[in-house]
Design a protein around this nucleic acid. Structure first.
Lengths: 197, 197
DNA sequence: TCGCAATTCGGTCGAACGTCCGATTAATGT
DNA sequence: ACATTAATCGGACGTTCGACCGAATTGCGA
């Protein structure tokens, strides 16, 4: 006898597997993949341990799904931050502002990216996923900042190369901001605009 | 009865604790801190498990020592790569070349930095150490590239800010190179010289 | 040479881990 | 209605982990 409704259909508007997935996302993004256990996730989701294996086979399968929703989140948000403005200066400014806001208001998303990228260094299973993400992200940057304006080269460097650099700059500066909460440090993110000056 | 010499004094020119430290360094830099156990390190060092606790108290203590030798390695090598040349262009070129060579020939050192930085995100014990390292590294860059030539500002950004950006660019581009072994990608590292063009 | 401290050793402890299983309950189709 | 499948549950399995212990060995100063 249970106080809630039917079991197979969703509860609180989300299915059992969605609850697990969200719980996994929360656990990993707040404590890191290395220290999160299946039991932690089950507890967070309000679900019995064996349900995790039932829906996602094993830990790796579950984590891969979490990477998936992280990827789509990034692709969507980055693209959105680049859509509006039209000059390359304005666009890169929008991108930087998105990144600064995320580091301030929702650093968990960045931590998640950093963490899984670290996992990808050692695990071939994840290296493919993360490598694709970085490729896609720099592809979006290239598309919106360079291609739309028919900029092929800039000071001798290709649009592709510069997009990788922009992405890397944000990533590498972002981790410094995260480690050393120095207000002045986030100014270093702005400095990337130097490319177009 | 053992075929080697005395036990307390060094064997092969290194003491017991040095053997353990080196083994820990090797294990972590080739497989990541998350998957390395005390037993792995003991085996790699050719030492019984309990010796690790005897010399380093616990796992965290051992890992902190490994971080320590990694830090001194970086500080020494980065400074060395910046010493000779005299124009800022030449210096940043030397820095980039050092980084490219390391990624090619000794990627374990970079993996180690990335890995421990990831650990630092979640563990206050390591965040202090890594935060200091990034601060010191950008300090060295600032000193050799900017201060020596009395460059205080460049296009409106302080030397400190630009040093952080240079460091972040190398770090963030480096991880992309590591994930996606694309020869063309390492060109993105060169592009950082755009600052002085 | 003796005695003490430092070191080395093998082994064990409890806890935590991921995975798997059988039984029970709920939903679905005929 | 009944049979079949899907879902949920609690528990147990074997393994691995870091930490710790007491005993044995070695080095060194008195």
């Amino acid at each position: 006898m249970r106080g809630e409704g039917t079991l197979l259909t969703e509860t609180n508007g989300q299915t059992q597997s969605e609850k697990i997935l969200l719980a996994a996302y929360m656990c990993i993004s707040t404590r890191g993949y290395a220290t999160v256990s299946m039991r932690d996730i089950a507890d967070e989701a309000g679900v019995v341990l064996s349900q995790l294996n039932y829906y996602f086979k094993n830990k790796e399968g579950l984590f891969k799904e979490v990477v998936g929703i992280m990827i789509s989140k990034y692709l969507k948000e980055i693209e959105e931050s680049l859509k509006q403005k039209n000059s390359p200066q304005k666009k890169i400014e929008g991108l930087i502002n998105y990144f600064k806001n995320m580091l301030q208001l929702n650093p968990e998303l960045f931590k998640l990216l950093y963490d899984f990228t670290g996992l990808a260094i050692w695990s071939p299973v994840f290296s493919g996923l993360l490598s694709e993400l970085f490729k896609d992200l720099s592809g979006i940057i290239e598309k919106y900042i360079f291609n739309d304006l028919q900029i092929k080269d800039l000071k001798g460097y290709s649009a592709k190369t510069l997009s990788r650099l922009i992405l890397g700059s944000m990533f590498g500066t972002g981790i410094q901001v995260l480690l050393d909460q120095d207000e002045e440090l986030s100014e270093a993110l702005n400095a990337m605009q130097i490319i177009f000056e």
